[in-house]
């Protein structure tokens, strides 16, 4: 089964084609690198897959359903998305941010404690996010994306802003995610930290699919 399937997928912003007839698949259980220079369309593709941006043409199926269709809403908890912004409320503490997201998705509060412990965030869990360093905010964003224990992760430049230790931690955790038979699509233009992690690669340039390698 494919967790992602796109056929002739197109996204235009005015006259600009951010995605130009992209057709690709992502098999279940794979950890795939989405590679390309700046402006290649990586972020747009991830946003379409996460149902944040509606495509202007073509077809898309994520986890077996059209994310913009009637069944799409119920699938959103099975998908973890972490964009380039950490998507956390600065005025709330890290713990409160995770509690809000857990409430949105009906997640057991015990999972918050588990992730705070695993990502070594105990010391800062009670602090407002706006007072945290970029590295901690990235880690907190990752904890948020993992809160629902998603079947498919969509990560946009996840190593940005992480120090060496946190980068290794992220790579290690992605390996664990892969071993558990779950899928991930990770956008990065230079994924030095994740070398050896990926079992496939999708290359984009100027919105076009240049190729897929396994």
């Amino acid at each position: 089964m494919n967790v992602i399937e796109t056929r002739q997928l197109e996204k235009r912003f005015g006259t600009v084609r951010a995605l130009d007839r992209v057709s690709t698949t992502l098999p279940e259980g794979s950890t795939t690198l989405l590679r390309g220079p700046n402006g290649a369309g990586k972020t747009t593709l991830l946003r379409v897959l996460a149902a944040l941006t509606r495509p202007t043409g073509g077809e898309v199926r994520v986890l077996g359903v059209n994310p913009f269709g009637a069944d799409g809403a119920a699938q959103r908890s099975r998908l973890g998305y972490l964009g380039q912004e950490t998507a956390l409320y600065g005025e709330l503490t890290l713990q409160e941010n995770l509690e809000f997201y857990a409430r949105l998705h009906g997640v057991d509060p015990d999972r918050i404690e588990f992730l705070i412990h695993e990502l070594e965030l105990e010391g800062v869990a009670g602090r407002r996010v706006q007072t945290l360093s970029l590295g901690y905010r990235r880690r907190a964003g990752l904890a948020r994306a993992r809160l629902t224990d998603p079947s498919l992760l969509l990560l946009d430049e996840p190593w940005n802003g992480l120090d060496a230790e946190a980068s290794q931690q992220l790579t290690h955790w992605l390996e664990q995610h892969h071993k558990a038979g779950r899928s991930a699509l990770v956008a990065a233009h230079s994924p030095s930290a994740g070398t050896g992690l990926f079992d496939a690669e999708i290359r984009l340039e100027r919105g076009r699919l240049l190729g897929t390698e396994s």
Partner: peptide, 15 residues
């Protein structure tokens, strides 16, 4: 501004 609109868009129900 905080990018948190993503969280609301991903709510698992009719928006």
């Amino acid at each position: 501004e905080q990018g948190t609109i993503v969280l609301l868009t991903q709510a698992p129900c009719d928006r």
